[in-house]
Design a protein around this nucleic acid. Structure first.
Length: 348
DNA sequence: AAGGCGGGGTA
DNA sequence: TACCCAGCCTT
């Protein structure tokens, strides 16, 4: 039995019961694929259920506000996915007449859809023989064929895609694609793969050459940057505070946060009070107190945020129209969400 | 071709 | 701590 046949056989006996597998509606499959990009099934599943319920068709999603979409996405990370999802819903309505595109070439025109996602949707929903190559596929192929090519090099990307394309079962591309991914997720795992009970162990070259632990190979590691965030949290007498929306490039675009002063290093209250930003927002009689003695280190995949929350009391503050009891309407990063929870707990 | 983009699970 | 997760976009 050849490679794909073995995996499909394994898949039919071991597949998980996941909500998006109950449908071939491309809108739902698309939702699941975007949500699951760089995201574990366990983390993404509740978000999928929320989105399906809130936006039963692409029309509801297209007509929603971006803030609403981001609010439902809050906590899932990689927020450009949510903005692109919303944009793509409008593409489906405006460019495709509200009918979800039915081929790889059309699907990949949607914002936020690359080769992987277009291959997944077109194979699962429309039986087009496009092989998916996600993190699971890289791992399974690198090990089974003992391939040392870096999976994050342009050479590796082409090589693995071509190999996956050769191996796919063209008579059932959707099942074939899901089989190799599910096998990578559950059996040929990153750490401690289950080689003892592997249906491919007889012919797995990495197992034979004892290179399982080295594969798949990835080039270099990214360097983590340190940043220092000082949030100015107005604790207004009228139950009011200030939030601002992050715009432009960088992290958390479209999400809300308290007024932020970023510095090159840890700074004290006196330094903050003397900044232009602080003087613009608050009066001279404003008082400042540190909420967290030890800075909170919020870790993103590419930067560490050393964060202090400063509580500001100011009777004469001018621009403050956000009410604490409405603050949950705004999409905020987890860092801010965690603070709001501990702050409101403390002041209750 | 390289860098940016979250948050959480696992060992 | 280090790695990785149903990747994509911008420069």
């Amino acid at each position: 039995m050849d490679f794909s046949k073995v995996l499909i056989q394994w898949y039919l006996q071991n597949d998980r019961d996941l909500p998006w597998r109950k449908t071939k509606n491309p809108y739902f499959v698309w939702l699941s694929e975007i949500i699951l990009q760089q995201t574990r099934v366990a983390q993404g599943t509740p978000y999928y259920l929320t989105f399906v319920k809130e936006f039963p068709t692409v029309f509801e999603l297209a007509e929603a506000s971006e803030t609403h979409v981001l609010k439902l996405w809050q906590g899932l990370g990689y927020y450009s996915r949510a903005r692109n999802l919303h944009f793509a819903a409008k593409q489906v309505v405006n460019d495709f007449g509200g009918v979800f595109p039915n081929s790889y070439d059309k699907i990949i025109q949607l914002k936020g859809v690359g080769d992987y996602t277009a291959s997944a949707i077109s194979s699962i929903c429309f039986k087009e023989p496009h092989a998916v190559v996600d993190g699971n596929v890289y791992r399974v192929l690198a090990r089974y064929f003992n391939m040392g090519t870096a999976i994050n090099s342009s050479k590796g990307i082409k090589e693995f895609k071509a190999l996956a394309q050769e191996l796919i079962d063209p008579t059932q591309p959707g099942t074939s694609n899901q089989a190799i991914m599910e096998f990578g997720a559950l059996h040929c795992k990153p750490q401690n793969p289950l080689c003892d009970t592997c249906p491919l162990s007889e012919s797995c070259l990495a197992l034979k050459h004892k290179t399982i632990k080295e594969l798949p190979f990835k080039e270099k590691k990214l360097k983590i940057k340190k940043r220092y965030f000082n949030y100015l949290v107005l604790n207004g007498e009228q139950g009011n505070t200030i939030l601002t929306e992050r715009k432009g490039k960088g992290i958390w675009q479209g999400l809300f946060e308290f007024p932020l002063i970023e510095s090159d290093d840890l700074i004290d209250a006196k330094t903050i009070v003397n900044t232009k930003e602080f003087k613009q927002l608050f009066s001279k009689r404003a008082s400042l107190s540190l909420f967290n003695e030890k800075e909170i280190i919020h870790k993103l995949s590419h930067q560490h945020l050393y964060t202090k929350f400063w509580i500001v009391e100011d009777e004469e503050v001018v621009k403050s129209d956000i009410l604490w009891n409405k603050i949950e309407q705004y999409p905020v990063p987890i860092l801010i969400s965690n603070f709001i929870r501990s702050f409101s707990t403390k002041t209750d």
